[in-house]
């Protein structure tokens, strides 16, 4: 790890200003960032620790939405009665991230800002059509995830909270890579006021919506309808854990399992 300066701020505005001023980086749970720094894949000169900023914490119901602060830990989302009642699929998704120790440190905001191609939360955010709030603006999930580890966030822009519209029903099914427990492929299926949404993580360079599955499920919301869809392997990830063809095959299989879980 290279040397850095570590700072705290007493408000989100001050933290953002400090990041902008120093060209530094936000530190949330550190579960991705510390590992990257140890490997010298990340070498921020300044870390601004967001821990303790109460503006970024908490889970609340706001009309037909569930609003979760960026610094809310995975374990808190998994255990929250409000989340279990309104969007049980989101609580289950959080409960399935990594292991207990990772869930006790890792945060919603950190997961989204990092946009790991195999991360779980991006699938929930895109699948539910959530809105990402930052210190500057609001960003629709459809516009937030830009590519491999890339998001719409600008320099010094901080995620403050995420607003998840409560769906009619939703389920997330992950085929976990057995060593890391990240998603080899994960599929989030939601029936929402705006129609069926299907978000896929782990399979491509970044989370994406599977239009063919959405169309098929809008016609008939059954596991068989999902299973009948063929997803082309073009552009999907290939690595020692699975070929692009294998991942392409898993997408409708997992979508079908998600639909079956909702029956």
């Amino acid at each position: 790890m290279y040397s850095f300066d570590i700072r705290k701020a007493d408000s989100v505005a001050a933290a953002a200003a400090l990041i902008a001023q120093t060209g530094g980086r936000a530190l949330a749970g550190g579960q991705s960032l510390i590992a990257a720094m140890k490997l010298r894949l990340a070498q921020p000169g300044t870390l601004v620790d967001l821990a303790g900023l109460t503006e970024l914490q908490g889970i609340r119901r706001d009309g037909n939405a569930l609003v979760i602060g960026a610094m809310t830990r995975h374990a808190e989302v998994a255990a929250a009665a409000d989340v279990k009642a309104a969007i049980p699929a989101l609580a289950a998704l959080a409960e399935g991230i990594g292991d207990r120790q990772v869930r006790n440190m890792g945060t919603l905001g950190g997961s989204l800002a990092n946009n790991d191609p195999a991360a779980c939360y991006p699938a929930g955010v895109l699948g539910l059509g959530a809105t990402v709030h930052t210190n500057r603006r609001t960003i629709a999930a459809d516009d937030f995830f830009k590519g491999l580890y890339e998001t719409a966030l600008g320099d010094g822009e901080l995620i403050t909270q995420v607003s998840f519209p409560v769906p009619t029903k939703a389920a997330y099914v992950k085929f976990a890579q057995p060593a890391s427990r990240f998603a080899l492929v994960g599929v989030f299926v939601a029936q929402t006021g705006g129609g069926v949404r299907v978000a896929v993580t782990g399979a491509g360079p970044s989370v994406f919506r599977a239009k063919a599955l959405e169309d098929a499920l809008a016609r008939t919301f059954t596991a068989d309808a999902a299973k009948a869809v063929r997803i082309p392997a073009t552009g999907l990830n290939s690595d020692l854990h699975g070929s692009a063809e294998y991942r392409a095959h898993l997408i409708p299989v997992l979508a079908a399992r998600a639909v079956a879980a909702l029956a």
Partner: peptide, 22 residues
């Protein structure tokens, strides 16, 4: 590398991997 859990300690009662926390 935050995989094995041998370094697990409690921080305010929460189990965390101390090799992946400053």
């Amino acid at each position: 590398t935050a995989q094995c859990g041998a370094c697990t300690v409690l921080v305010d009662g929460r189990a965390i991997k101390s090799c992946n926390v400053l």
